[in-house]
Design a protein around this nucleic acid. Structure first.
Length: 467
RNA sequence: GGCGACGUGGCCAAGCGGCAAGGCAAGGGUCUGCAAAACCCUGAUCAUCGGUUCAAAUCCGAUCGUCGCCUCCA
């Protein structure tokens, strides 16, 4: 069995072969930090976190780089509007984003480079491109010469001429070709700048990623990822820049996640059609968003609605149902049931891997996990003992762990001053039930339910939890 | 105009040539004093039309619809 991944470059699923055996170098485009991150960013970060975790599960040593683009026109604009220093703004938003990642249980990147800390390399690379005839300076700006790049457009599968037709933005007359893009922009008064052979200025949008991936991962990498809105122009231009300098293919696999849809349209910072990560996490655990992402395919558009969120919450509850302990006094499964149980566990794992190997088919993989949940719950009902249940749960938890689900229950009762009183009510209710005063015991249950406290009775007693 | 994605039961969504996974919701049942949970059972011929094939949700063509990129966006 081998892992296959969809490659935007070839538009096919290809067998995943790394440059260096056993090692994966991957670079994922992080956010431009001019505003707080929204759930679309969360989706992208989760998709590549899941990919990364699976690669590790498959035995690869993964070097994962996620950058921050912290110098950009919009950052400057936003900073000017609020009067905040652009660097302070960027730093604040980077800190916020990192906290978002932690809250979403996303593993920290091996390296989190920032554009502003790579200026020397950026200037060098631009100079390199000029020296090679791939770029030219005009009045303090530097542009990439797309006509010099024979295979420009190979990622987005377009050619320069087709795009000219739709280019309805004002074309800078100083450019040799309308599609030429900026590598360096001269600074206007009041803007932050860095020194360069072409005068004070700042890098254009795409060059920083070319530089950072090369700096931290080398000329050639295994995977380059990001949202599919980055295919053009961002990633196309990264390829043009990097390959023009190195003369070698840049990334083997270009992987792109689909967009998260809110109200039938992409979440987008520019249109304000979004839900911020921090707002979402106020009401939901990180697992919930992860479950939403897992339930779909990463390449297509993903539906994000209140109903989907609620469904994901319930799906998680179901998954956790398998984590409940064995029934008290369980005598253990019969030999035949034990064998069946073990076979089911083994098969679920095999099928899980088969799904994930097929271009990270998380929806299929999660389906297998729910099969496993049923298997475990069945075993419990059939009297599996603690050891047997724990064995099954360990198998489930290993795989949910690969997907990055914590399955943690938010213990809202811990430290809640009401807890002691609720415990007391349950004690009383137990006594009431002993005396078969069921109308009273039901009254307690109903009243607590109305207050958000759910009581569950079993042979061994009652338990409660907050909704 | 160019490039692309998508349309599967009430909702979310796998499957991509061989009798349609899974989750949520719904209905019936087992268990329970009742309830909850768990378990069991029930439901779709896959936008439309045409073609290829022994066989299509899965391939080809057309049509309709939705969304996206070509300008900053994960």
């Amino acid at each position: 069995m081998s892992l296959k991944l969809y490659n935007t470059l070839t538009r096919t699923k290809e067998e995943f072969v790394t440059i260096e055996p056993g090692k994966v170098r991957m670079y994922v485009c992080g956010p431009t930090v001019y505003d707080k991150a929204h759930m679309g960013h969360a989706m992208s970060a989760l998709v590549f976190d899941i990919l990364r975790r699976y690669l590790v599960f498959r035995g690869y040593e993964v070097t994962y780089v996620m950058n921050f683009t912290d110098v950009d026109d919009k950052i400057i604009k936003r900073a000017n509007e609020s009067g905040e220093d652009p660097f302070v703004l960027g730093q604040r938003l980077i800190d916020d984003y990192k906290q978002n990642l932690v809250d979403l249980n996303i593993l920290p990147a091996t390296i989190h480079p920032r554009a502003t800390q790579e200026m020397e390399g950026i200037v060098e690379m631009i100079q390199d491109l000029i020296n090679k005839g791939c770029a030219y300076a005009v009045d303090g700006d530097v542009y990439f010469r797309v006509e010099k790049d024979a295979d420009y457009g190979k990622l987005s599968h377009r050619n320069i001429n087709d795009m000219q037709a739709g280019a309805r933005i004002d074309v800078d007359e100083r450019k040799e070709h309308p599609m030429d893009f900026a590598l360096w922009k001269s600074a206007k008064p009041g803007e932050p700048y860095w020194g360069s052979p072409w005068g004070n200025g700042r890098p254009g949008w795409h060059i920083e990623c070319s530089v950072m991936s090369r700096e931290h991962l080398g000329d050639q990498i295994d995977i380059h990822g990001g949202g599919n809105d980055l295919i053009f122009p961002h990633h196309e231009n990264e390829i043009a820049q990097t390959e023009s300098v190195t003369g070698k293919p840049f990334a083997r696999f270009w992987m792109h996640n689909g967009m998260l849809q809110l109200n039938g349209q992409d979440m987008s910072k520019s249109t304000g059609n979004l839900v911020r990560i921090e707002d979402f996490l106020r009401d939901h655990s990180g697992d919930v968003m992860r479950m939403i992402v897992l339930n779909g395919s990463y390449r297509g558009p993903m539906t994000f609605t209140d109903e989907v969120v609620a469904q994901a919450e319930k799906a998680l509850e179901r998954m956790r149902s398998a984590l409940k302990p064995a029934l008290p006094g369980a005598e253990g499964l019969s030999e035949a049931d034990t064998r069946e149980f073990h076979d089911a566990l083994f098969n679920a794992r095999e099928e899980f891997v088969a799904c994930m190997d097929d271009d990270i088919n998380t929806a299929g993989a999660v389906g297998k996990l729910f099969d496993l949940v049923r298997t475990i719950n069945q075993a419990r009902d059939r009297g599996a003992n603690a050891e047997q249940i724990a064995f099954g749960q360990a198998g489930l938890l290993e795989l949910t762990g690969v997907l990055g689900l914590t399955l943690a229950v938010e213990d809202k009762s811990a430290g809640n001053p009401a807890s002691d009183y609720i415990d007391l009510l349950l004690e009383l209710r137990a006594e009431v039930r002993q005396r078969k005063l069921y109308d009273l015991s039901d009254l307690i249950r109903n009243r607590l339910k109305a207050l958000g406290v759910v009581i569950e009775d079993s042979r061994e007693g009652s338990s409660w939890h907050f909704e």
